[in-house]
């Protein structure tokens, strides 16, 4: 199968590409960023998804399937740029799919789509609406991209469209939002709150994406891995130090004293849980995760050991986690 991956230079997308090549698929990737170790089996077109070169790649390659992974989070990108990449980019990709006869399109989204609010249920199903956009507008572009991609299900019913909402991924690549949050020596918590966090090993995430593609899955699906754990347990197992701060002091302390920076809206994500149900995905694909919760945390820990205390200062051993 000829597969085109957008955002291929991201760590997770690279793993998906390598796995697809090893399974005998032909893979072409589009990304603004380089992929220095791009293997010979992958063809990389270094361009912006909204530029003519990107559409030219669709025209030339006639891919059978597209995996859209070119989305960015608020951690790395400014608001106006995020809207252009996430919403504008998603719109373009689905336009190209329409114009160039792509039979299958897969949008890889995030479980943070649902939002962290105090009175939301645990194990949210795909039917649940996105919440908390008013308190965390930084997520709005990703939610809009997700909904736009899902609308292709009725706009272009002849195409096999799937939208996956993946939980946080964690693993040796130190990629992603949760890895970035856990990168430093101290990890902030909100005093009196310890929400459940749901995460999966990056190899399980790759497996779920490939399974979706090969099973020609159609629809919107939550994808999760092992059992959710409280944030304090994640911090303990990864050898970090929890720093419990009263909610009112967060704006003063975050970004200082070895604590990561967080947008004010993101604070809700360490106060309230976002836990999703992946029952539908497992039923549709037979997916089962291979890495348990502690195996996944151990994989992260092995790649990013806890900081060693020396004198009065603490320095993280791990460099800041790469983000895409």
């Amino acid at each position: 199968m000829k597969i085109l991956i957008t955002g291929i230079s991201g760590k997770l997308a690279q793993k998906v590409a390598l796995e697809l090549v090893s399974r005998g698929h032909s893979v072409t990737g589009i990304d603004r960023r380089p992929w220095p170790d791009c293997p010979p089996g992958v063809q990389l077109v270094q361009t912006d998804i909204r530029k003519p070169d990107a559409e030219e790649t669709f025209r030339r390659e006639h891919p059978d399937a597209v995996i859209h992974m070119a989305t960015v989070s608020y951690l790395t990108t400014r608001r106006d740029e995020r809207y252009r990449i996430n919403l504008g980019g998603t719109q373009k990709v689905f336009e190209y799919c329409e114009r160039h006869g792509v039979q299958q399109a897969l949008f890889v989204g995030r479980h943070t789509y649902y939002g962290a609010v105090p009175d939301a249920a645990l194990y949210r199903s795909e039917d649940e609406p996105p919440m908390a956009l008013e308190s965390f507008p930084e997520l709005a572009d990703l939610v809009a991209a997700d909904l736009f991609a899902a609308s292709a299900l009725w706009r272009s019913p002849e195409r096999i469209t799937a939208v996956l909402r993946l939980v946080y991924t964690l693993g040796p690549s130190l990629h992603g939002t949760l890895a970035s949050f856990l990168a430093g020596p101290r990890v902030p918590m909100i005093l009196g709150f310890d929400p459940l966090f749901q995460f999966m090993h990056e190899r399980d995430a790759v497996a779920s994406i490939i399974l979706t593609l090969e099973r020609k899955l159609r629809g919107v699906f939550n994808v999760a891995g092992p059992q959710a754990l409280p944030l304090s347990e994640l911090i303990r197992v990864t050898g970090r130090t929890p720093t419990r701060i009263a909610r009112v002091l967060h704006p003063l302390l975050l970004g200082r004293f070895g604590l990561p920076r967080l947008q004010s809206g993101a604070v809700a994500h360490i106060k309230y849980p976002i836990v999703i149900s992946d029952k539908a995905f497992r039923q549709a694909t037979g997916f089962s995760h291979q890495y348990g919760e502690y195996e996944t945390l151990d994989a992260f820990l092995a790649a990013s050991p806890p900081p060693v205390r020396s004198g009065a200062h603490e320095e993280p051993i791990a460099s800041p986690a790469p983000r895409d």
């Binding site: 105090p118 009175d119 909100i190 005093l191 009196g192 709150f193 310890d194 929400p195 459940l196 409280p230 009263a246 909610r247 309230y272």
Partner: peptide, 16 residues
């Protein structure tokens, strides 16, 4: 009750 989830410590205790 829903308000419990908003109260520090009580939210944590109830959940655990």
């Amino acid at each position: 009750d829903r308000f419990i989830n908003r109260i520090p410590f009580l939210a944590q205790l109830a959940s655990r």
